[in-house]
Nucleic acid binder design. Structure first.
Lengths: 210, 210
DNA sequence: TTATGTGAACCATTTCACAGCC
DNA sequence: GGCTGTGAAATGGTTCACATAA
């Protein structure tokens, strides 16, 4: 089945909301209410949820527990993903400690840097290796996902080394650089500066005219 | 003129690429080449650039310097934006030091936290205030933009205080929480966990079938 | 009666295809 | 001839409106 990217993104939101509702002991909720809480149209919520089968009850709404399980299964993973983080600067370290990257669905198994003061040490409980050893280590540790937090000018080189391992299938990049990868490697980019520029652009527009 | 959001995002990419090409002394470039370097279709590049007037030369391509100036003007800001950063955890500190937030187009004028060890000190050369003083400080310092790097459960409260200042017009949120704001405040969210989930979802799909 | 599920209409964005200019 | 600029077509995503089921 084909699912649009925005739908997956919203599914993550539904999942979070449902987890919270569940804790609060809420039993039933309507698409209307979900929409209000998340800033979405009710029809959008219904369409998203209907892609994966009929899960609500007509005339009633969605059973919170049941829907939570359902969305959880949609987003579930066949195994525990093994992740490597490349670039232990401040952003890298911040992500290492970040709550959203602590999960039982995936774990950071190794970090990589070029700094001799870091290589060979444990950082946040994770062993640090030299970037040059990526092909070897990634293969040994069966790491399929890379989180990239290196400066832009080092990004392509780092990616090349990671891809050379032959085991990496996905990259989450925080580097503001276009990356060239083989067609079977999936890249998602988080571009902080671009997000800020977008925000400023639309603020500017709404100042002058609208 | 109405410009689509994806176009603005690509404009930022063009700008970066052109800056680099300029440094390398490149004089002329075609939409074809820009597309290849950025992973876009040539027609997409041409359409994006054409929204803001005829800037290329038919039969020749785009003059790098000229196009760089042009894109720079499109993305330019009427003034230097004054930014406040709320939540000086590790992510907040990482962003404070992050290169992409060093610019002559905007500056971080104040940071806010609840930790008494931080309030009253200078952090990365920026004064730190208590979150509760946001309404006052934001107004005093004419801060119109907030970067939000607080835990999810503190996000809405922090936003409420920021909005109460009456001067905040835009929020860049790193919190994984839906935010309620008045309709005249623009919110952009960077949801790291959601990006990773999306990546994993599509990797999972491409494993099982496709 | 109420709220879901969904085809159809709508809107936004991308891609095509070619006219227009260098 | 070559490459841009741009209407028109195609694609992708959202919203509507109502049939359907509890």
């Amino acid at each position: 089945m084909k699912v649009a990217e925005p739908t997956i993104e919203r599914l993550v939101q539904y999942y979070r909301l449902l987890t919270q509702l569940k804790e609060e002991g809420r039993r039933v909720i309507s698409s209307q209410e979900i929409g209000e809480m998340l800033g979405l149209k009710a029809s959008q919520v219904r369409k998203d949820l209907s892609y994966f089968g009929e899960i609500g009850k007509r005339g009633v709404g969605y059973h919170v527990d049941r829907l939570h399980d359902h969305v959880s299964k949609i987003l579930s993973h066949p195994n525990v993903w093994r992740i490597g983080l490349v670039g232990v600067g401040r952003l890298g370290e911040a992500l290492l400690g970040h709550k959203s990257l602590r999960s039982d669905k995936f774990g950071i198994e190794a970090v990589f840097d070029v700094d001799p003061n870091k290589v060979g040490k444990m950082i946040e409980g994770v062993p640090c290796f030299h970037v040059d050893d990526m092909p070897k280590i990634l293969k040994e540790k069966k790491i399929e996902i890379i989180i990239l937090t290196v400066p832009a000018q080092a990004a392509q080189q780092a990616v090349d080394k990671a891809v050379a391992s032959g085991v990496v299938r996905g990259i989450l990049s925080f580097a503001t650089a276009p990356l060239v990868v083989p067609p079977d490697v999936l890249v998602y980019g988080v571009d902080i500066a671009a997000e800020l520029e977008k925000l400023l652009f639309y603020l500017k527009s709404s100042t002058s005219k609208e």
